[in-house]
């Protein structure tokens, strides 16, 4: 499989849902039939609004959510891991190689542990190091890479600001020497001046440690800046995917266009150029048949309005995929 690190093949994730104990069991279609390939060393962006299924997909790739159908393959150097067919031993191995950075650095760190213990915990749990000395060495090493002082290691998380805490979370995720990182809204809780710092750090670590990222975010301008490839999700489907420059310069899907125009412009003279989308994202309990976006689409065609066009990506330009409803 050469240069791909992760292949996601026809993955769907459903959750069972029952409103109360006498009502009928229903299925929430959180993620539907997703196909993506994440290249080694790439910064893959996943954007979408809340409820679009981006976090569920990220967790499914990490093996933290059950995959209902399809499979995810992790192409390691020596062997491939199939996430849907993994024994406990494999899962342990996989967890060393794929890690998660959370959104909220205030909630993700235990207030009762020192920074050193927080960063060292994965090493101890996964039994990667054999002696305390070795653990300390690796903790110090990764802390320095994440620009934390040795003196910081003795302190507790409450003594740190948001940006510093996020650096601690990053150090904790990287200490097991993973190859693949899912960063789920990792800069969303930070102030802009700090956000830029963390983004630069993630970029720098990527080249230093040969990392591959799946970067989940709702902020298109952030994604446009750091990612090489971007997939736009809506209601459990990828509606458009492509190299980030191409996608942001030349968006094809009406949802991508609307999202881009909704970013408030920093120029006070350019007011209300947003393509206003009516209404809100429909419930994933009963998504509209056919194109899922048609209930909010600003310019629906006659065919798609009836829900007659099925969801499916078409390659309009090399590497640039658009859902067929809007591509036609």
């Amino acid at each position: 499989m050469g240069d791909n690190l992760i292949s996601v093949n026809n993955v769907s994730v459903n959750f069972d849902y029952q409103e109360n104990f006498i009502s009928k069991k229903q299925k929430i279609h959180a993620v539907n039939n997703i196909n993506i390939k994440i290249k080694k060393g790439s910064f893959f962006g996943l954007v979408g609004e809340s409820g679009s299924g981006k976090t569920t997909l990220g967790r499914a790739i990490l093996g933290a959510n059950k995959i209902s159908s399809g499979n995810v393959i992790f192409h390691d150097d020596e062997r491939d891991y199939d996430l849907t067919d993994m024994n406990k031993q494999d899962l342990k191995e996989y967890r060393k190689k794929a890690q998660l950075i959370f959104q909220d650095p205030y909630a993700a760190l235990s207030p009762r542990m020192t920074v050193r213990d927080i960063i060292a915990e994965p090493l101890e749990v996964m039994r990667i190091t054999s002696s305390r000395q070795e653990t300390d060495e690796r903790v110090r090493d990764i802390a320095a890479k994440c620009r934390l002082n040795i003196e910081h290691l003795r302190r507790f998380p409450h003594a740190f600001s948001g940006g510093q805490r996020q650096r601690i979370s990053i150090a904790r995720a990287l200490v097991s020497n993973p190859k693949f990182i899912v960063a789920d809204e990792s800069v969303a809780a930070l102030d802009v001046s700090i956000q830029a710092d963390i983004l630069n750090l993630l970029k720098q670590l990527q080249t230093e440690l040969n990392l591959t990222y799946l970067f989940i975010s709702h902020d298109l301008s952030v994604v446009a800046h750091v990612c090489d490839v971007v997939a736009v999700m809506y209601l459990g489907h990828i509606v458009e995917m492509g190299p980030s420059r191409e996608l942001f310069k030349n968006p094809k899907h009406s949802y991508t266009k609307a999202l881009l125009s909704s970013i408030p412009s920093i120029d006070p003279e350019k007011r209300s150029e947003a393509i206003e989308l009516k209404g809100e994202i429909p419930s994933a309990l009963n998504p509209p048949p056919g194109c899922v976006f048609r209930t909010r689409c600003p310019n629906p065609g006659v065919d798609c309005k009836g829900g007659e066009i099925k969801m499916g990506l078409i390659e309009v330009e090399p590497g640039h995929w658009v859902d067929q409803c809007c591509a036609l």
């Binding site: 600001s161 940006g163 001046s193 420059r245």
Partner: peptide, 22 residues
């Protein structure tokens, strides 16, 4: 603050954080 803001119309501009913490 303005320089730290990622600008979607100018993707080549580097993101420059304000050094240090509040």
């Amino acid at each position: 603050l303005l320089q730290a803001l990622p600008d979607i119309n100018n993707l080549d501009a580097p993101l420059s954080p304000i050094p240090g913490n509040i």
